[in-house]
Design a protein around this nucleic acid. Structure first.
Lengths: 228, 228
DNA sequence: GACCAGACTTTACCGGGTAAACAAACTATT
DNA sequence: AATAGTTTGTTTACCCGGTAAAGTCTGGTC
């Protein structure tokens, strides 16, 4: 075992940071696709294979920060007080993100953050990676949802997780869009809170139903055929 | 202008079909990643650039059939009778897919279909493309949702569309998983219908609420701060 | 001081995807 | 029927993301 703050690890962390910052500044200056990884490696004074030892793909050079909050929602859910409804926990957490202007809520109008989001939302390959992260997030959230206390059945847990992830995505994108359209984060904050309250409120209303817990949600359609 | 069923277009369609079928059979035999597009082009007796004129990417060689149903949900919604609730329309459509064993419901146990789904769900790059298709589907659905009659406000339309797409994805994947675990489609059909009824029933319950239409969904959390 | 292990480099390669220049075939006009 | 133009395809060559192999350097350890 090496010492906890070995010289090597510091060097390693510095190299990683050098690559990442070189990449981000090049990307923000000229866009994602037009910048090649060879160029980034040269700017960070490392070789191309070395770059790929630090980051698994070109997209990860941009998204590794977001990737780090990976199972955040699941963690929040697990650390809730036992008497709070899961949706309320996540709702409160999203609201807290809004008031902190957490970039993941889309409500941060610092120019660099706006440019960063613009790059991500404007680059298909970055969106694709982001979707994969969301997928894992959803999976972790579904797993946490069906843990006790208040463990839900697997179908409900999966649906709830999927819907929470979808809600967060929709809300963040709407917030970001308003900032792009010229509004300030402070001016947008009230409506962002309102929309979040409405979205989570909807979900909460569904999942609070006793019938849901019992697996007997109402169905207005006539009973389906049993052999098809 | 050429004649509607020009000789050229038939030839073109035949070439397209030759490429697609060569690709699919190679993929099913040996998996997606291990087969190169050069190999497919050779098998279809065309050049690599020609292949990419017919299909935009390697992934599209697999997903173009799915891509063709792109705005299906939006179309279904638009052609509904005026007195039916949108969720009921989509619910009925999904049920119909189940009884027809439509592959998009995940409830088709023909060996080729199973193998096809296995390949898609087991290949990250295919999943990523699939997510992009779902994204467009969601967008079209949201647009259709807020058209009259019964036009909903943009936030509700977006959330509803996102949740419908999420529900379809979750249900299809659960159905497919059961088939992979060895159950037959006929044996799985009843529970598939049950789960679909429950999932769409939940959503229906939310969106049927008058409070939702009025934009006053219940919110159990205290009112959020107005300045953050 | 000798040694080991991990990190870095160079080189070479593979596969997806595209640009450019060119050949062939069908259409339409003369 | 001959010509010109458009469409469609081919060939060649290239770019870029990503990886494998083989060797070098260096921090840390006995």
């Amino acid at each position: 075992m090496s010492s906890p703050t070995g010289l090597r690890e510091r060097k390693r962390e510095r190299t990683r940071e050098a690559i990442s910052s070189a990449a981000i500044s090049l990307f923000l200056a000229r866009g994602f696709d037009p910048v090649s990884v060879a160029e980034i490696a040269a700017a960070a004074e490392v070789s191309k294979p070395t770059l790929f030892k630090y980051f698994g793909s070109k997209e990860d050079l941009v998204l590794h920060r977001i990737a780090d909050h990976e199972a955040e929602a699941a963690g929040v859910l697990r650390s809730r007080s036992a008497d709070e409804h899961p949706v309320d926990t996540l709702h409160r957490h999203f609201r807290s993100g809004l008031s902190r202007r957490d970039p993941v809520t889309g409500l941060n109008d610092h120019p660099e953050v706006l440019a960063f989001h613009g790059m991500v939302f404007g680059t298909p390959s970055l969106l694709a990676r982001l979707a994969r992260y969301a997928e894992r997030d959803e999976e972790a959230l579904a797993a946490a949802w069906q843990e006790p206390p208040g463990g839900t059945d697997p179908l409900t847990a999966r649906l709830a997780a999927a819907q929470v992830v979808a809600i967060q995505r929709v809300l963040a994108r709407r917030n970001w869009q308003r900032l792009v359209d010229g509004a300030s984060a402070d001016a947008t904050y009230p409506v962002a809170v309102q929309e979040a309250d409405r979205a989570f409120g909807l979900l909460r209303a569904v999942l609070a139903t006793e019938a849901v817990v019992a697996g007997q949600a109402p169905c207005r359609l006539p009973a389906g055929p049993v052999s098809g």
